[in-house]
């Protein structure tokens, strides 16, 4: 799309777009091409020789039980993180939308965790759930006799990183759901209540369906967040452990590439992740397009 009335200038438009193209080419296209090239090669850690091996890296990757385990861990982790943060965000937003007083104060109290870095969120939760000092783990041990040790037990570590990752995302989801709910015409709610629909019925019959585009968008964003941006949580809290129980895909790329110096495999893993995110983006745009056609 373009304006009807445009400026005419021979050099200026190129000059204006140049910084963007330059930065994109240098830090997106060249690295992506390089990654693709590397994923088809085997090289030694010192970069002394390269051998072209076609798709061997990918084949090896999908035969590697450690990689498949990491895929399973990532799926569990993302699904749980998205579920916890979305349901919590939706619940709080519904309540906040019902509240008539202190609206501004409530919003202020709920949005600030968005600004906390995932890595710091990890540190805070590590302290809360620390096996020997954490107040929550001590309380659970005393009251329910629950044995809890995220430093040694894989399942507990997983729960800890899920909570730490979901926590800050609750604010993000809250903001979207409140905005979505405010866009729902009040006349619909009133009409339903005149027809005798209870608040719960109205929630399921009106709010949820009309919120579904927001819900879809938020789900996509949460999954992308859980896949990629939670690196900081994993790195500060568990470093992929114990015994690889929280070794999500992004962390594995980092470990194999920078610590293990297995460049070919790391590049292949990057390519898999890139394809995944392109797929998600395309799906999302398809959906958004359909939505536009539907309403228009």
């Amino acid at each position: 799309m373009i304006k009807r009335s445009v400026f005419t200038n021979r050099k200026l438009p190129y000059l204006l777009i140049l910084p963007q193209i330059l930065v994109t080419a240098t830090f997106f296209y060249w690295p992506a091409a390089q990654g693709l090239f590397q994923s088809l090669m085997i090289s030694d850690p010192f970069g002394l020789y390269n051998t072209f091996v076609w798709f061997d890296n990918f084949i090896a990757l999908f035969k590697d039980p450690l990689y498949l385990k990491s895929v399973a861990i990532t799926l569990t982790f993302s699904a749980c993180t998205a579920f916890v943060s979305i349901s919590m965000g939706l619940f709080i937003a519904t309540m906040a939308n019902r509240a008539l007083r202190f609206k501004a104060l409530i919003r202020t109290m709920l949005i600030w965790p968005y600004a906390v870095a995932p890595a710091i969120s990890g540190i805070l939760w590590l302290f809360l759930l620390h096996p020997s000092y954490g107040v929550v783990s001590i309380a659970f041990k005393r009251w329910f006799g629950l044995e809890w040790n995220p430093v040694l037990v894989g399942r507990d570590a997983m729960i800890m990183v899920i909570l730490a990752s979901a926590w800050k995302q609750v604010s993000y989801n809250f903001v979207f759901f409140v905005a979505g709910m405010q866009a729902i015409p009040h006349s619909l709610i009133e009409a339903a209540s005149m027809d005798g629909a209870s608040p719960f019925r109205r929630f399921w019959a009106i709010t949820v369906p009309l919120l579904s585009p927001t819900l879809f968008f938020v789900t996509v964003m949460n999954i992308i967040y859980a896949f990629f941006e939670t690196f900081g949580v994993i790195h500060t809290v568990t470093q992929g452990g114990p015994g690889g129980a929280t070794n999500v895909l992004v962390y594995k790329v980092y470990q194999d590439g920078f610590i293990g110096l297995n460049l070919g495999s790391s590049a292949a893993q990057s390519i898999v992740l890139m394809s995944l995110i392109i797929l998600i983006t395309v799906l999302q745009f398809k959906y958004v397009e359909r939505k536009v056609q539907y309403t228009g």
Binding site: T26, F27, F28, W30, P31, A32, Q34, G35, Q38, I224, F228, E229, F231, V250, V253, Y254, G257, F258, L263, S266, A267, S270, L273, M274, I277, I278, I280, T281
Partner: peptide
């Protein structure tokens, strides 16, 4: 549009 730095770390680092 959606490609985060996390998926292209190694080549970007080399760059």
């Amino acid at each position: 549009l959606m490609l985060p730095v996390e998926v292209r770390i190694l080549p970007t680092y080399e760059m």
